[in-house]
């Protein structure tokens, strides 16, 4: 785990209101695994904010974000040269094992966050990667993708298949998913063995505060920041996990 004062090197828009930020963090980039996250801090927020690592290229890591509240709006207003505090890599990512032939990646909205790295790791293990890439409409659909095949899905049919990413998804030897918790609950119904990256409020990100409790089907809670954020879908008690995180007043 590293705590770095890291420079933002680039920022690009990938959908309406959604941007990818590149951060110079070579120590983290060298070891981060798909599904792991960094906890970012900057002047203006009190607690750090967790972000899945989107890509890593040896020198830089990337995270993807959207303005969902005051903090993320501040981060989006920053630019190349600005320095942020970066703690990571944190959490337990997707445990991909050699031997599977096909991997299906399912993302909803900002759930694209861990997918490019997951696609890279799955490809490196010899899997054929299909990324089913969903959002409400073409405007909110991240324009970037990876893998051998990409299936686009929008609720309003403005790009690709009309419907949810889940309804558009084929079966695969391994299914990975990330998106709103209610989408992941539906993934769990269809693929109990899927590996899903959940979203929770988070305090420390390092396992000590117990703020990011994830309710388990076997009873009790564990920590999204330590045992998670990636879980076997059937292991989560979806009815007890908040289906939606309320960051700010929405209409």
């Amino acid at each position: 785990m590293f705590l770095l004062n890291a420079r933002i090197t680039a920022m690009r828009e990938v959908a309406r209101g959604m941007a990818v930020i590149s951060i110079a963090a070579p120590e983290i980039a060298a070891i981060v695994r798909a599904g792991q996250f960094v906890n970012l801090g900057w002047a203006g927020v009190f607690l750090r904010r967790p972000f899945s690592v989107y890509r890593a290229d040896g020198e830089r890591i990337e995270v993807v974000l959207k303005a969902v509240g005051r903090g993320t709006s501040q981060l989006l207003a920053m630019g190349p040269g600005d320095v942020i505090s970066c703690l990571g890599p944190l959490g337990h990512g997707f445990d991909l094992e050699a031997g599977s032939r096909t991997a299906v990646l399912i993302s909803g909205g900002l759930g694209v966050a861990p997918m490019p790295l997951a696609a890279k790791e799955a490809s490196a293990l010899g899997m054929r990667v299909t990324w089913v890439h969903g959002a409400r409409s073409i405007d909110e659909l991240c324009s970037e993708s990876a893998g051998d095949e990409v299936i686009w899905a929008t609720d309003d049919g403005s790009r690709g298949i009309a419907g949810t990413a889940i309804s558009a998804a084929p079966d695969g030897d391994v299914v990975l998913a990330c998106g709103p918790n209610r989408m992941l609950a539906a993934v769990a119904d269809r693929w109990p063995e899927a590996l899903v990256a959940v979203e929770t409020y988070m305090g420390c990100g390092t396992g000590v505060c117990l703020g990011c409790a994830v309710p388990l089907t076997r009873g009790g809670y564990d920590r999204a920041c330590k045992e998670g954020p990636v879980y076997r879908a059937a292991d989560i008690d979806w009815a007890a996990l908040p289906s939606h995180l309320s960051y700010a007043v929405t209409v």
Binding site: V45, F46, Y201, C209, G211, C212, A213, A240, P242
Partner: peptide, 14 residues
Amino acid sequence: TGSPPPRIVETPSG
């Protein structure tokens, strides 16, 4: 077992 989530929320300076 502790309380169900959400367990934490950020507030002004705390």
